[in-house]
Design a protein around this nucleic acid. Structure first.
Length: 816
RNA sequence: GCGGGCGUAGCCGAACUGGUAUAGGCGCCAGACUUAGGAUCUGGUCGGCGCAAGCCGGUGGGGGUUCGAGUCCCUCCGCCCGCACCA
């Protein structure tokens, strides 16, 4: 009987599902293991091989854990809200719910065809009211805690479609609307924010999680902590006017030769002198437009305009001009800076351009007092700094900070690049924000008992892309929960990253009605032991879910601080042309055709075999044939059909067969532990080749042979679950199921070959290789080397000065 | 510009802490078997010289440390990915 993947895969998938062997019960006595892989976003109507590339090895790792004796859950669900569904509705007149559920149906079938151990009982679909109700619940909790607030903020706005755009709807380097190609502008709107900045400091602490250093670094940079001093600067001639600046270099304050306000800074209107008003106004207009067109060039000239006003240096009393320039951002620090050209490159360029003085206050090492030709960022001693002269700059730093604090003009402060999380989307297909606006009571949260605030089903999708919620009378008009009078609902919905911030909690019991999750089962299952997914989520999703967990902890719902203990980022599978797969490029590879041609096991193994999991690479369908051959060979070896000829690499003794068994168990175990599936499969290929070549020898009838094929099937089980089950049950006649068996153990002693190759070198060059017993002593190895005729030949007229012995591997005889 | 990663055969890749470079697979070449096969099996496959044993060279280029470097250090080249005026 030949290996026929199609029939055996369907058969076992049906049986596994009937018997529910992939559901991990809460009350199982084994230690728990929560394996989470990022849930798919059904933005298209099927999964491509890139999804399989992420999921199949995750499944293999989860199955391996289960064979190691853990009660493993591998849940799955759908990140079902988001723009593509809404666009489909606008373009094709299909309701987003129907469009999404239709895609999910197709994807569910694909996920089943993978033969993964999905714990379907835990499935979550985020666009279901039973899910998004809890987004609203969390929002209200955060509102009560002061973590959710409303504020005026600029959003991207398409002037042609007359609507706001989400970040992902703004495309291209020139920032145009993805629908109509019109350049996007900023517009100020009242928006809801979550106060992630409250957790900025804690989010910088990665000590409780084992995440890739790269991800931690990305998050660290994204949070962008910088410590400095914020202080007040008075406007000369206006005793009542002052502004605040932030600096990380208070030690350079005596070197200030100008100040800069951001173009949007509110003080600009107040201080600009009448003769400068025209120029300042046109600069601000230009800046407003330019800041919205992405600033492409790094070589961009740093320009600005003088306001006509002067600032007083609080330390030296000196008066310096105040400029407006767009290299200062309103959104960072205080929106105003002190300009210290001698010690800041940007300020240096600006000063050179406008002929401003460049006073040196930190003397570079070996400085001769002449003007600097570029900003000096070093740590010399302070000069021209009044009482601080002569101090090393780090002492000057704290000295000046102390002095400012003592005089009450400034204080030490930490700034973050991280902004609060803007969750408002002017969209239909998302979670409605549970807020009501009442003329009399103001902003009123929807009472918990009225949740969920449901999306109306009879929404009318306009070709302009405006949210149907804004025009839906039935949704919009509501009685104020507080006073009962006519009031209006918030029509914004939540960012879909809200959904994915806590989905791993909802997986515990997606049907639970009274709470987002049961604290007892959370205590049992969480945090997630292993998370897998793409690096593209390093600073959005992975930061938000950490924030959410910390907020939940502060709500008293859980007692841990981090959502996922370990993280692995797999690489990206590109199209055959080397580009990212996309429908518009026509390079999307559908796994279904390969499942039909070769079976899921072959596709799974091939995806794991092509290279290191974290590297990805272009899809290439040529090599899949080799993996198909491998599984056919496994089939032949285990079923006893088609024995090979005795060749060069076959086990010739019991001891050798035993060695191959233990060595392979060791290699596969260690490789799967490290997610090195490609080498695990290589090891299984080698083992299979050895067994095939041994099958024509008398060892075929030795009891060890049974152990060998049994080990092969067990080691293969996590990677290729169907063929392993078929061989285990139908050909080895072992009890169902191979997937509930224990993982084979190896004996390190037996995993060592009886004979090893000892390399003999003279002066680092290989001269001879000899077979020696593996436990050979260093003294014996040394003796073998020195007595080897080949070695002696090369030692002829030389003096041996040293002999280096690497136990059981190498002897290097050093001469000269 | 700053930060991070990578560069090994015709191709994908292996080589844990410096110790046989190129395992495994694809492709290619030769052979066996076969009525046929989406086949299967065996052998070969880094380059140069040599009938051969073997010698020499070789992990993007150059230099260094070391008995010994794909691996460590310096430098240059090339590719990829983040951040991009964050005061």
């Amino acid at each position: 009987m030949r290996y026929d993947p199609t029939s055996i895969e369907a058969k076992w998938q049906a049986r596994w599902e009937d018997e529910g062997i992939h559901h991990a019960p809460d009350d199982d006595p084994r230690p728990k293991y929560y394996f989470l892989t990022m849930y798919p976003y059904p933005s298209g109507d099927y999964l491509h091989v890139g999804h399989w590339y992420a999921m199949a090895p995750s499944d293999a790792a989860a199955r391996y854990r289960r064979m190691r004796g853990f009660n493993v859950t591998l849940p799955i669900g759908f990140d079902a809200f988001g723009l593509p569904a809404e666009n489909a509705a606008i373009e094709r007149g299909i309701h987003p719910f129907n469009w999404t559920m239709r895609n999910i149906e197709v994807i569910r079938r694909q996920l089943r065809s993978m033969g993964a151990m999905w714990d379907w009982a835990r499935e979550v679909v985020t666009c279901d009211p039973s899910y998004y109700k809890w987004n609203q619940w969390f929002f209200l909790k955060m509102y009560e805690m002061g973590l959710a607030y409303r504020s005026l903020a600029p959003v991207d706005w398409c002037p042609k479609d007359n609507t706001t755009l989400a970040r992902e709807q703004v495309v291209g380097d020139d920032r145009v609307c993805e629908r109509c190609g019109t350049p996007v502008v900023k517009k100020n709107l009242s928006q809801w924010f979550l106060k992630i900045t409250d957790y900025a400091e804690e989010l910088l602490d990665f000590s409780k999680i084992e995440w890739p250093e790269r991800v931690c670094l990305l998050q660290r940079n994204w949070i962008g902590r910088s410590g400095g001093v914020e202080f007040s600067i008075d406007v000369a001639g206006h005793s009542e006017l002052s502004f605040r600046v932030f600096t990380t270099r208070p030690d350079t304050v005596y070197g200030m030769s100008f100040c800069v306000l951001a173009p949007e800074h509110p003080l600009v209107d107040v201080i600009t002198s009448s003769d400068r008003a025209g120029e300042v106004e046109s600069y601000r207009f230009k800046a407003a437009r330019e800041s919205d067109i992405e600033r492409l060039s790094t070589e961009r000239e740093r320009d600005g305009v003088f306001t006509g006003a002067y600032a007083v240096n609080p330390m030296s009393g000196e008066e310096v001009p105040i400029y407006v320039a767009d290299y200062v951002l309103l959104t960072y620090g205080t929106g105003a800076i002190m300009g210290v050209p001698a010690h800041d490159e940007r300020d240096f360029d600006f000063a050179v351009r406008y002929g401003l003085p460049i006073p040196v206050v930190i003397a570079p090492h070996g400085w001769d007092g002449s003007p600097l030709d570029r900003a000096h960022l070093g740590d010399g001693r302070m000069v021209n700094s009044g009482q601080f002269d002569g101090l090393p700059s780090d002492e000057g730093w704290s000295g000046i900070a102390d002095e400012m604090e003592r005089r009450g003009i400034g204080e030490r402060k930490v700034n973050y690049r991280l902004h609060d999380w803007l969750i408002s989307r002017q969209r239909y297909w998302g979670t409605p924000i549970p807020i009501v606006y009442c003329d009399r009571c103001g902003t009123v949260p929807v009472p918990y008992e009225d949740l969920p605030v449901r999306l109306p089903e009879d929404a009318e999708f306009r070709p302009t892309g405006e949210s149907p919620l804004r025009y839906h009378e039935g949704f919009l008009n509501v009685a104020c929960p507080s006073c009962g009078r006519a009031a209006a609902r918030e029509t914004d919905t939540m960012d879909t990253f809200v959904d994915s911030s806590w989905y791993q909690y909802r997986y515990l019991d997606p049907r639970l009605d009274g709470a987002p999750f049961d604290p007892a089962s959370a205590a049992r299952w969480l945090p997630v032991d292993q998370y897998t997914g793409g690096i593209e989520h390093a600073v959005m999703h992975l930061l938000y879910t950490r924030f959410w967990t910390k907020a939940m902890r502060d709500m008293g719902l859980i007692e841990f601080d981090e959502p996922m203990l370990r993280l692995f980022n797999q690489g990206v599978i590109l199209g055959p042309d080397g580009n990212r797969m996309s429908k518009s490029k026509g390079n999307v590879v559908n796994p279904d055709e390969f499942v039909a041609a070769y079976g899921a096991d072959v596709l799974r193994a091939y995806l794991m075999f092509i290279g290191p999991w974290d590297e990805g690479g272009p899809w290439n369908s040529r090599g899949i044939e080799g993996v198909a051959r491998f599984l056919r060979r496994v089939w032949a070896v285990v079923t006893g059909e088609g024995g090979g000829e005795a060749g060069a690499s076959h086990a010739t003794s019991e001891r050798e067969l035993e060695y191959w068994i233990h060595r392979t168990v060791q290699r596969v175990t260690e490789d799967i532990e490290r997610f090195q599936f490609n080498t695990a499969i290589s090891a299984l290929m080698e083992f299979t080749n050895v067994l095939q070549r041994t099958s024509g020898t008398p060892l075929r009838r030795h009891p060890l042979w049974e152990e060998a094929v049994e080990s092969l099937v067990l080691l293969l089980a996590p990677l290729c679950p169907h063929i392993a089950e078929e061989l285990w049950v139908e050909h080895l006649h072992r009890p169902y199921s191979v997937h509930t068996q224990g993982w084979p153990a190896f004996d390190p002693g037996k995993a060592t070959a009886e004979q090893v190759t000892l390399v003999l070198q003279v002066d680092g060059r290989v001269r001879e290789r000899v077979q020696v017993p593996s436990g050979i002593t260093d003294a014996a190895a040394r003796e073998i080397a020195l007595e080897s005729p080949r070695v002696r030949q090369f030692l002829a007229s030389r003096t041996v000065v040293d002999v280096i012995v690497i136990p059981g591997r190498l002897v290097n005889v050093v001469t000269r």
